[in-house]
Nucleic acid binder design. Structure first.
Lengths: 233, 233
DNA sequence: CAGTGGTCTAGACCACAGG
DNA sequence: CTGTGGTCTAGACCACTGG
């Protein structure tokens, strides 16, 4: 293996991956420092840094100043999920997207909702319930609360032709949020709408997003039976 | 805003984020090229590149040679899930980890399994079923198939004191894999083991990992009722 | 063809944390 | 204190791709 084989950071990354994978560098092992690797590979240290930093971001290496770079003990798998708009999700599967608004109301929310969104308990929020369809079949049920104080324009939007899911993405910026995945048992109402057996096991995604310190929206998406969320490792 | 405010790539990233968030640069907009931004911020183009590349990896910018850099139309949320060993998962919650092997056998697998793992239909695989406990309560059920051809050492491992989940991470490297999340209805056997009602909605994770072209292991992890997988956006 | 991002280089200084 | 990774710079060449 001559140094001239390595011309860019990706080929260096490949070689490091090969050594980890071939157990030349085992989990927990200290690997040579950037300067030494640069000398070995015949490139600038910056280039080695680029390769190793990328692997560290992927979780395969642990890097610490002075302590050096080690192969991660537990190559914690980082699964990256792309959470897209439901319409894209359906259209990407080659199916026809459909949308049906079920309910739109400005009401005082349950205390669990106002607490989670840190809004005043008596403050009205916009409540949206809607059904997303794929090829005219029920696909996912959306149950959403919108903080009108954070998104005033939402109170003038009927959400009859465009889903809140999509409208908010365009009109309501957010700085951060959290997301949770779980399994729930279908309620009678949910099974009626999704056209599935009562108590069916359904996949649910809960999201809560914030604009700095103000909550924007809280949504639960409930998918029809058999839905899977997939990604690669 | 003087140029001297920006001394490193992260402060530049923050400023770009601010402009996107403040709608100075709207979704779909073309933003200035790297050279111009470098001039504006009073830094090297490399530094601007670092900031913008990072934002592009996060999905907030679309970058194409010659076409320039645009604010992403759909800021697809990328949720990164850290898939750790179950023992760590439990211990990180401050609970006591427990492990119980239910079954260990070398058998001819169902055809669905051999097909997914691309092993010969008559080839024996190692089948492991085990229960993970948190504070002595059932936490997750592991149902795993191991390709002995890919991991010969597994046939000598009893898996009585260490879970396959953990043993494989140390002893069986993999190059890639896929993972799927879903909701399933508890079978009678599953509800007995997990000590939950039959037909309860359970959260399931299916993983299939490969070492180059050879399948290593296929596993389904079924969590007790109410389990949530959480992360931030 | 030409403008844009992608990358490499050689050197430098710095921040952090191990010993 | 000192070795390590983290970053910045100025300049250069290249790869891709839009017009």
């Amino acid at each position: 293996m001559t140094a001239s084989t390595f011309r860019n950071w990706q080929s260096i990354q490949d070689e490091v991956l090969r050594r980890i994978h071939a157990r030349e560098w085992k989990p927990g092992d200290l690997i040579p420092n950037e300067a030494d690797l640069a000398a070995e590979f015949g490139c600038a240290r910056t280039t080695v840094n680029r390769a190793l930093r990328s692997l560290a971001e992927a979780g395969l290496l642990d890097r610490r100043r002075k302590a050096g770079t080690r192969v991660a003990m537990q190559p914690i798998a980082k699964a990256t999920l792309d959470i897209a708009v439901i319409r894209s999700e359906i259209e990407d599967r080659g199916q026809k997207y459909g949308y049906h608004l079920i309910e739109r109301a400005q009401v005082v929310p349950p205390v669990l909702v106002s607490a989670a969104m840190q809004t005043d308990a008596s403050q009205h929020l916009l409540h949206i319930r809607a059904l997303h369809l794929a090829d005219d079949m029920p696909y996912a049920l959306e149950d959403r609360w919108i903080n009108i104080a954070a998104v005033p324009a939402a109170s003038d939007e009927p959400f009859a032709d465009i889903s809140a899911n999509e409208w908010l993405l365009i009109n309501a910026p957010y700085t951060h949020g959290d997301i949770a995945f779980s399994a729930i048992s279908a309620s009678q109402q949910q099974s009626d709408i999704l056209n599935c057996p009562a108590n069916a096991a359904l996949f649910a995604i809960d999201r809560l997003t914030w604009d700095s310190t103000v909550s924007v929206t809280k949504v639960r998406l409930i998918y029809g039976p058999g839905h899977q969320l997939r990604t690669v490792l």
